[in-house]
Design a protein around this nucleic acid. Structure first.
Lengths: 196, 196
DNA sequence: CACAAAGTGCCACTGAGTGCCAGTTTTGGC
DNA sequence: GCCAAAACTGGCACTCAGTGGCACTTTGTG
């Protein structure tokens, strides 16, 4: 990695770490950007060259995860049943989330405690939903009806995934996330009428 | 209506109207709260006694609609199939939205053009989802499994509803919203496997 | 080494949002 | 109608997020 890039990564990491320490000890609103900059040894002006705003600090993996998701979605287009594709992706992410359980839970508690962050979090879901809809649409073929079906399905999918994540967070990440995910997708596939 | 209440309603309305005029002519970020206050003949300090922040101006019916939704949800608890309850509610709101099509579309274009507003909009969905989950849970009875099923279902429901609204907005509110809603709920109920 | 490009720091500025307090308006009891 | 309490408003001073501009330093390239 070129020196310049390495330095940037270091600064970014310093800002994220400093912010996390402050956020968790003082809370989000009580932490000023000045404090974070001081801790990270960087000017305020520079901060805004790394992050659009204070909120973005709470989602440091946003774009990285989206990219990974997009890459995985490529594989979904080819599977006969798109929900099966989601199952595979779900398993991958469940594995990652379980492995980083502690830090992810801490992050989530922060987000849940600040309305502005909770709102921003949905922007991420929106990105994922759009990506899914596009994939399903390609899979379903041309036509207005199939586009609408793709979008409904993507909306429902993100809905159950988000509900599942919230459930998992609420239970302190104790349940088997991969299993929760599979069950959620079963519901999505078969409708929510049957008792099991 | 007591005098005091009437005056408050008038001020609130004046602020909303002034804001809408400015937002639509200058854009959201380009409009300052000072301008809105000047138009409405009210001090800046008073503005913040009516709205939490500038964003809240873009969702003037938020709490009113939620309350109406909660009232309608009461009826759902009793229907044998909760999705049928949603169908009824859906029809009610579809009617209102279609009747106010023009202003609702204008409002929505504003929201879609400002990321911060789009983010806030999801807070509303979250309120609705929570309410639905509670209702379904009551309907499904005690137990962890039925709670999770209720939450998954609520998540999926809000997902398809939001997707449907976006579709309707995109088509300039031309399609029959009531029908779109019913079709979306069909998908929710039967799963998204079948071609129709 | 020289030079362009990328990155940084500093300063001044706008605008959102809050705490405080003094002044005004409405309400309800008499 | 009168008066005190309660509700509402305006103005001021303040903190902090976020931006534009410019001079300075560091890195990559020939």
């Amino acid at each position: 990695m070129p020196l310049r890039e390495a330095k940037k990564a270091a600064v970014r990491q310093a800002l994220v770490s400093a912010a996390n320490r402050r956020f968790h000890s003082q809370g989000f609103e009580q932490t000023t950007i000045d404090e974070i900059c001081a801790d990270a040894g960087v000017s305020r002006r520079t901060f805004f060259r790394y992050f659009e705003n204070k909120e973005a600090l709470a989602f440091p993996h946003r774009s990285e995860r989206l990219e990974r998701f997009l890459a995985l979605l490529d594989g979904v287009g080819r599977s006969p049943n798109p929900v099966d594709g989601l199952r595979a992706i779900c398993a991958t992410f469940a594995h990652e989330y379980s492995a980083n359980r502690v830090s992810i839970l801490a992050q989530q508690r922060l987000v849940d405690s600040v309305p502005a962050l909770a709102a921003r979090e949905h922007e991420i879901d929106r990105d994922w939903e759009t990506a899914m809809a596009a994939t399903f649409h390609r899979r379903f073929g041309r036509g207005a009806a199939s586009e609408r079906r793709a979008r409904l399905m993507a909306g429902a999918a993100i809905g159950v995934i988000r509900a599942t994540m919230r459930y998992w967070y609420e239970k302190d990440g104790k349940p088997d996330l991969a299993r929760l995910g599979q069950e959620a997708l079963d519901g999505l596939e078969q409708g929510f009428l049957s008792e099991h």
